[in-house]
Design a protein around this nucleic acid. Structure first.
Length: 406
DNA sequence: CGAGATTCATGTGAAGTATACCTTTAGGCTTAA
DNA sequence: AAGCCTAAAGGTATACTTCACATGAATCTCGTA
């Protein structure tokens, strides 16, 4: 917070900020949205994707494709990379090809059947209302859009397991069955999932249709991550701003988390930001530790802040009980406290049924750790514990109190 | 003592409801001929 | 008479509620050793 007396110096501060040499050359290279020129250690996978999808350049329908592997193994980047190349070539050669990338995990965008199809339509350049239309009607608009113009459509469904978990596999069934109805265009689906066993949980007919081709992305080892980091760092940072061992340490942290390259890159970026902010002329090892903390903190706090009020009230009850007694909690206790909190926060309390679902969602988000247990004679319940670092609890508490105006 | 039966506290699926939003339709008003 | 606007009617998706049944191990019950 900048105090009154400092305000005169604000201009000076900005000037100094501008004059100061940035450690970064091109920070974008470390951001998640960045698609690098070349992707290391994924040649085989990328080639395979390309092989599967190539027919669409000849206006033939490529096989549906299913890609799986744990987080941060480069599934999304590789896919985006191939799409990018395909699209460039397609425009060059005037091949009628379009690609839609959707992340099904994003709430309120693509987490129901209706919203998913609506999102496709929007991506194809037509507006549809957020609700109110029959789902059939939305499908019809989609068909028509496809049939009006002749082109090949490539749909990439990232985190497809979330979609199925929430809405069932009917969507996939409908999508895989669209093709025979289309006269002009063709539709291919690429599903991406972190969950390795996901595909086997599908109904056989959908399973076979979706996974005409499958590609597994193996995890990176520490050496590979190091190289990925070096490649990106070269683009992102100015020369010799990295202290000896920084790359190795980032890689080690990430390898710890089963080879998650995304985390490693984020770690490196945030370390750079911290170094810059503290006026260090180099990124040092201790910046990484700080970054590690900051990332987790930001992730959790942002998540907490973005939750709807009801969800926050539930979380507040959990936090309140949990921080008073560092032990597992049961659903009943939470619900009881939740009701009194609703009263204080001027909220209409939801039913226990609903709270049960909300708790399950928190579990999925990784804010809490819930386990279904039976206490025999004393019933059955979820055994719940907070799963965020306890150092964050006061901060979360603060946010919740503010948001719920308690 | 041990095999079933019982029990508790809540999970969970299905169906129903409230709300917000959409399109269609019918009526009323305006306008131009 | 045609055209335009508005409000009501009729329909949907979504978030939530209600209802009813499922769960599963600690505990109880009761026949048997």
């Amino acid at each position: 917070m900048i105090q009154q007396k400092d305000q005169k110096g604000l201009k000076g501060f900005f000037e100094k900020f501008l004059d100061k040499d940035s450690l970064f050359l091109n920070k974008k290279a470390l951001q998640e949205s960045y698609t690098p020129e070349t992707i290391s250690h994924r040649d085989k996978e990328i080639k395979k994707i390309a092989e599967v999808l190539a027919p669409c350049l000849r206006n033939e329908k490529p096989s549906n494709l299913f890609i799986y592997g744990t987080t941060g193994t480069g599934k999304t980047v590789s896919m985006k990379y191939v799409i990018h190349q395909l699209m460039t070539l397609a425009t060059e050669r005037e091949v009628p090809l379009r690609a839609i990338y959707v992340n099904c995990k994003i709430k309120k965008v693509a987490d129901t059947e209706y919203r998913l199809i609506a999102q496709f339509i929007r991506d194809l350049g037509r507006e549809v209302p957020p609700t109110g239309l029959p789902t059939d009607e939305v499908y019809n608009i989609f068909y028509k859009l496809l049939d009006e113009n002749k082109f090949n459509l490539l749909i990439v469904l990232d985190e497809i397991d979330y979609l199925v978990k929430k809405t069932g596999d009917e969507v996939l069934y409908n999508l895989t069955r669209i093709n025979p109805e289309l006269k002009n265009s063709q539709l291919s689906i690429v599903g991406i999932s972190n969950n390795v066993v996901f595909i086997s949980s599908l109904e056989p007919r959908i399973k076979s249709s979706l996974s005409e081709e499958q590609i597994l992305f193996p995890t990176y080892n520490a050496i590979q991550i190091q190289q990925i980091l070096r490649d990106r760092a070269e683009v992102a940072f100015k020369e010799s701003v990295l202290q000896e061992g920084v790359i190795e340490k980032c890689a080690a942290y990430a390898a710890h988390e089963h080879g998650d390259a995304r985390r490693a890159l984020e770690l490196l970026r945030v370390s750079g930001e911290i170094a810059e902010r503290t006026n260090s002329d180099k990124i040092k090892l201790e910046h990484i530790d700080e970054a590690e903390e900051k990332i987790e903190k930001d992730r959790v706090l942002e998540l907490v802040e973005s939750q709807p009020k009801q969800y926050q009230a539930v979380l507040y009850s959990i936090l309140k009980i949990y921080s008073g007694r560092k032990d597992v909690i049961f659903t009943g206790e939470i619900y009881e406290l939740y009701r009194t909190i609703c009263e204080k926060a001027d909220l209409r309390p939801l039913t226990q049924r609903r709270i049960s679902d909300i708790l399950a969602e928190f579990d999925m988000l990784g804010i809490i750790n819930a386990r279904l247990i039976s206490k025999g004679r004393y019933g059955r319940t979820r055994e719940i514990a907070m799963s965020v670092p306890s150092s964050l609890e006061p901060k979360i508490n603060e946010i919740l109190i503010k948001d719920l105006s308690l």
